[in-house]
Simulated scan of single mutants.
Amino acid sequence: MMNLKLGKWILVSTMALSLGNMHHVQAAEMPAVQDVKLIRFSGQTIKVSWKAVKSAKYYHVYYQTGKGDYKLGRTTEKTYGLITKLKKNTNYKVYVTAGKTQKASKEDSQPSAVKSMKTKAYKRTIAFAGDSIVGCLHLQPTMITKMHSTANVKMVGITSINSRTFRTQRKGKGMTGIERVKSYHPYRVYFLLGLNEVCYRPFKDILADRKNLTNQLRKQNPNVDVVWCATPPVTKAEMKRAPHMRLTPALNKEMEKFAKKNHCEYLDYTAFLKDKKGFLKGKYATPDGFHWQKNACEQFGTLVGKYDKTLDD
């Protein structure tokens, strides 16, 4: 009888201990936000980015000028955001907390390490880099208008270029494509490449060259945003002429995985260009079957302009 009671006592005690441990896990303190970065966005706006906290749903960004109290700059579910309407030529201190509720609460994490930046006059530059598709965009200035961007927009489009020759072949002023892009000190770069290599270059070589291009930009500016865009479709007639263009969807799938692995963005903007069978629509195509007419360039500008804003706020 004593053994039975003892057994029950041990069982109950073990259950209580287990429940206690569960409660302890549930009430565990939210980890502090790590890897906070301040990135200059404009003369009166700072972009703040950080590493995700697995258990967090919301993040609260606080800022301070001088020795005053910290103010809540914004609350977001993303791992980045803008602090706007700041004073010019002013030092700001910023930290981020993580939490599970939209309103700041005592359950939020401890503040991250404090980062500092002084606002100053700045005009960010967005660059589009790649083959003759970028050349088409360059010839249609209304594409930039459709973006509705406050940034400077630069185009580096080179005919018959691919991911390797963009970094090895010297063109105007003796510069390679990637050297020209770097000369603009871009805030963000959109790469549009693929039409001149999907037919004949192994995917592993294409990806290796694109990693090299990404690394060159990051060596100059670790905070640069790199966006790899999908290779666009061609017309049915062009597909008959160059049947290996059927590999384009497979390359785009590999690029989506590449972007995630290498902490880049991937933009598949091609839906509006395609007909029901995946070919480039005739109303958007030039006679060669792969370049874009003005209406396609403008629609691309509208689409990428909306997308571009989501990368900052």
Rank of each mutant, 00 (worst) to 15 (best):
K8D: 05
Y269H: 06
D69W: 07
S183G: 09
L195R: 03
N223Y: 01
P249Y: 08
K118R: 15
L86N: 08
Y307D: 07
R210C: 06
Y269N: 05
K146R: 12
M147C: 08
Q64N: 04
K78Q: 06
T142C: 02
V114S: 12
F191S: 10
E254R: 14
K171I: 05
L193P: 00
H23C: 08
P222C: 10
N223A: 03
K85R: 01
A28R: 14
G194I: 01
L38Q: 08
K100E: 14
A16N: 12
P111R: 11
G66S: 14
V153C: 06
S109C: 06
Y190R: 11
K173R: 13
K261P: 01
E77I: 11
Y92L: 02
N91W: 12
L72S: 01
H185R: 10
R170Q: 05
S132N: 12
G73N: 09
K253V: 12
N221E: 14
P232C: 03
R180S: 06
G301Y: 00
Y62W: 12
L251S: 03
G43N: 13
Q44D: 15
K309Q: 13
N223H: 06
H291K: 06
M2S: 04
E197S: 11
Y190H: 13
G43R: 04
L137A: 00
T150R: 05
L192H: 09
L267A: 15
G301P: 02
L195S: 08
P222V: 13
